[in-house]
Design a binder for these strands. Structure first.
Length: 509
RNA sequence: GGUCCAUUCGUCUAGCGGUUAGGACACUAGAUUUUCAUUCUAGUAACAGGGGUUCGAUUCCCCUAUGGACUACCA
């Protein structure tokens, strides 16, 4: 690896919400930058004006901020290499395009979309081996290479729209080193003379990306595997510009695949299988349709980052839980795998479970209180601090604590029929009445004291643990669920406990 | 169709010529238990196939198969 300053960029296109695969690409860039004390840059690639989606740019920045992925330079952060939005750099690209045309590395093409379409279908029906617009076909098209100088002049004078195409070498092997994949070989005949500059006055991704990476002194291009096929074009561009000496190194990340079936992970999979594919909720400005997000679904940002980091990378140890800090110290491409990773929503939940257990009771109480507030339930945080430790290990998300602890806040309105049938026998009301007396007599209503007292009473009278406790649970909780009974009644307090017992005795038949 | 990339338990993965092929998620069983969970213990489960190279291949090479990506005046 060269010893120049590490400068990497995340270059999304603001055409919609950022997919979790995109977040992972950003994450790996960020980790690599931090690991090497380099800079991380956000560059917005919006050269296609027709695909602009309002709010997408903000969404990208907010999602990454939520994840704890920060930029050193970008449209908000500023920096010495700006502007960082390609539409704001528009005036810059034409000269580079012209430079290539002048040097003969590129040419002007006047073909209309219809003509291109005709060529493609013709080549397809002919079953031609090469269907690209390149050395094999370009002389049959209308461009500054096939037309005479006079014809080109006439077309230009008439204001005929044209694009600038890269002139690929004929039948040349291009061998490139990818940090993750090693040596990859392409032949120029299989590539095509890509459009570099569009007739609307904007550069295409290919030109803009190379020019900007050069101007921003990018040292490593880290992006998804879908870009691998255009790597040779980009390398050829660096050569054509004479920038090969400062060309960045390339690393193409494996893709995130669907949990089941074929293909890469898409929005549809999330809808179908009930998991988010976006970091945050997104409202489509056109349709008003909502897509769920990890944040809104109750995932901790740390858990989300952690699970993303392990999709395609591993530490080489058996450790699976990593803080962002730890990741920045350990991350390296030598441990990034080459093959695509199928996303497993079940394991995602497990990660959140792990992070939830790591939170302090006070933190969880505070988060849970916010959730309860939205539900219109007002509970003191001091009470929640007592409840949380009894339910946290049973849940993956803060909101799931509700179903595990609702009975703490609301006395049972009805009683689980199945459990009643099984546990509420003829002599149960009498037994519960006695139990109430035993509890009433407890001077201290802690779990410790009540448990010792009640158990002693059961034993002394040979009542049977199951007979008492199952009915007791039904009376207090209303269903066969929840934590340890004596922990529950300690939180409930003597008065409420006795009240519920009494009501159950009167109600359950 | 073409090009490129990939291929270890169902899934994420460790392995970098000699291992009882390891871990995690999920699953199953047992233990614990006042319910449901948790927890603990145990278990099922993989080198895509075929050729080489080698004393020896999961590991290196080739072919096949399968999967994926790309194949726009989109990124």
């Amino acid at each position: 690896m060269s010893n120049r300053e590490v400068r990497v960029r995340f270059a999304p296109s603001p055409t919609g919400p950022l997919h979790m695969g995109g977040v992972r690409t950003a994450l790996f860039n960020y980790l690599f930058a931090k690991r090497h004390g380099g800079k991380f840059i956000l560059r917005i690639e919006d050269t296609d004006q027709t695909r602009f989606v309002p709010g997408a740019e903000e969404y990208i920045m907010e999602s990454l901020a939520w994840c704890g992925i920060s930029f050193d330079e970008g449209i908000r952060e500023g920096g010495a290499f700006g502007p960082y939005r390609q539409s704001d750099r528009k005036s810059l690209y034409k000269q580079y395009s012209d430079q290539l045309v002048e040097s003969g590395a590129a040419y002007m093409a006047f073909d209309t979309p219809e003509e291109l379409e005709t060529m493609r279908t013709k080549l397809e029906t002919e079953n031609a081996a090469i269907r690209q617009y390149n050395a094999g076909t370009r002389m049959g098209m209308r461009n500054s290479l096939s037309l005479s100088e006079a014809e080109v002049k006439t077309l230009l004078a008439a204001g005929t729209p044209y694009v600038v195409r890269f002139k690929l070498p004929n039948n040349e092997d291009i061998v490139i080193n990818d940090i993750i994949r090693g040596e990859v070989t392409f032949n120029s005949l299989q590539l095509d003379d890509k459009v570099l500059f569009k007739s609307d006055g904007m550069p295409t991704y290919h030109l803009a990306n190379v020019v900007d990476d050069y101007l921003m002194k990018i040292s490593h291009v880290i992006r998804g595997e879908e870009w691998l096929p255009s790597m040779p074009l980009h390398v050829l561009l660096y050569r054509a510009f004479g920038w090969e000496a400062v060309m960045p190194e390339f690393a193409h990340l494996p893709l995130l695949l669907k949990p089941v079936g074929k293909g890469k992970l898409s929005k549809r999979d999330g809808d179908k299988m009930g998991f988010p594919v976006f970091p945050m909720q997104w409202k489509d400005p056109e349709t008003g349709e909502f897509s769920r997000g990890y944040r809104e679904d109750g995932y901790f940002a740390e858990a989300f980052v952690n699970l993303l980091a392990l999709l395609g990378w591993n530490s080489g140890t058996e450790q699976e839980i990593f803080t962002m800090q730890a990741l920045t110290e350990l991350f390296g491409f030598d441990r990034v795998s080459k093959s695509g990773a199928r996303f497993d929503p079940e394991k995602a939940k497990w990660f959140n479970h792990q992070y939830l257990q790591l939170k302090t009771d006070a933190e969880l109480a505070s988060l849970y209180q916010k959730f309860l507030q939205q539900k219109g339930i007002k509970v003191e945080e001091s009470v929640l601090v007592k409840i949380v430790p009894h339910v946290k290990q049973r849940v993956n998300f803060v909101h799931e604590m509700w179903e595990q602890s609702a009975f703490f806040f609301v006395a049972p309105e009805s009683y689980d029929e199945k459990s009643a049938k099984k546990n509420w026998k003829e002599q149960t009301p009498e037994l519960m009445t006695k139990l109430a007396e035993v509890l009433e007599a407890c001077t201290e209503f802690t779990a410790n004291v009540t448990e010792t007292t009640v158990k002693a009473w059961i034993e002394a009278n040979q009542h049977g643990m199951g007979a008492v406790m199952n009915a007791f649970r039904l009376a207090i909780v209303g269903a066969p669920q929840g934590p340890h009974m004596f922990d529950i009644i300690e939180v409930l307090g003597k008065t409420e406990t006795l009240k519920r017992l009494k009501k159950a005795i009167e109600t359950i038949k």
